[in-house]
Write a protein that binds this DNA or RNA. Structure first.
Lengths: 146, 146
DNA sequence: GCTGGCGTTGACGTCCGGGGCAAGGTCTAC
DNA sequence: GTAGACCTTGCCCCGGACGTCAACGCCAGC
């Protein structure tokens, strides 16, 4: 099948498939006229990539799964390298969740305090003071390039 | 004070301060020779921005806090607009955490399954089959442009 | 032979928060 | 008078995962 059909059947776009090929992730055979030619196996590889992507895996992280399938294994996660990616992602998710949860609690506390101050400030006398503590603690810090 | 001193005192860089100014977030007076001139109040504004940034707020999300301080309020979160940002961020964090937690559990389950299969596949007979379910559910889906 | 729908490559835009560098102006100290 | 530290603007660069043209080739149907 050609690129358009593969894209449709996998629920993605031709641009994405060309991008994957440019990354060496999903190489394609070529027909005489230069068109990319794919088969059912490629569809399987692509579905593996897309599934992992949907779960938040980066493109590079899907590579071991794809290579595992290409090597003829029954599933993309039948290889040790894939399991390692699972484990790393698990640790990463745990860390991110913990960090976000801490930030969430901090923000919730600030919101509660600020609401109290607003309620007290309008009727009573204005004297409260405080802000989100300049606590240089473990904020999300914006997704680091790690 | 000039830009270099402000940057040092706030623990950031001159590049960042110019960037903030280009975004209209932290405007600066100018001296006769064209140098940017800041005062202690600007340092306060900047600290507010940096604190929120450290907690994962986007630059635009810090704007209400800055404007609140500029309007003369005691704290950046003394204004309703700031409280709204707190609430929105809280809801966003809750959603993200729930999503990541669900993904985490899914990945953990897949890892456990794959490890079992690997252990069973080596000694016994190879017959298992399964992958990370192509569940089109609520994966992180990668930060959508929302 | 002409339109329409595929396909090709290449290059640039997006979002975010800046980093890095160049060429030049300005101020202070020696 | 000159070194060095500071300031100015302007421009291109990063990464991730593509989107969006542009300009062209190929092929089927009518």
């Amino acid at each position: 099948m050609r690129i358009g059909e593969l894209a449709r059947r996998a629920g993605t776009t031709t641009r994405t498939l060309r991008y994957y090929e440019s990354r060496g992730l999903l190489p394609a055979r070529r027909t005489g006229n230069g068109y990319r030619e794919y088969d059912e196996e490629d569809l399987r590889l692509l579905r593996q990539i897309r599934t992992l992507q949907d779960f938040g895996f980066g493109l590079e992280e899907t590579r071991p799964f794809v290579e595992c399938l290409q090597a003829g294994h029954p599933a993309g996660d039948s290889c040790p390298a894939s399991l390692e990616v699972y484990r790393a992602k698990l640790a990463e998710l745990d860390a991110v969740v913990a960090r976000l949860q801490a930030v969430r609690d901090e923000v919730a506390a600030q919101l509660a305090r600020a609401e109290l101050e607003a309620a007290a400030g309008l009727p009573g006398g204005p004297e409260p003071r405080c802000e989100l503590a300049p606590h240089p603690g473990p904020g999300p810090g914006r997704p680091d390039p790690t």
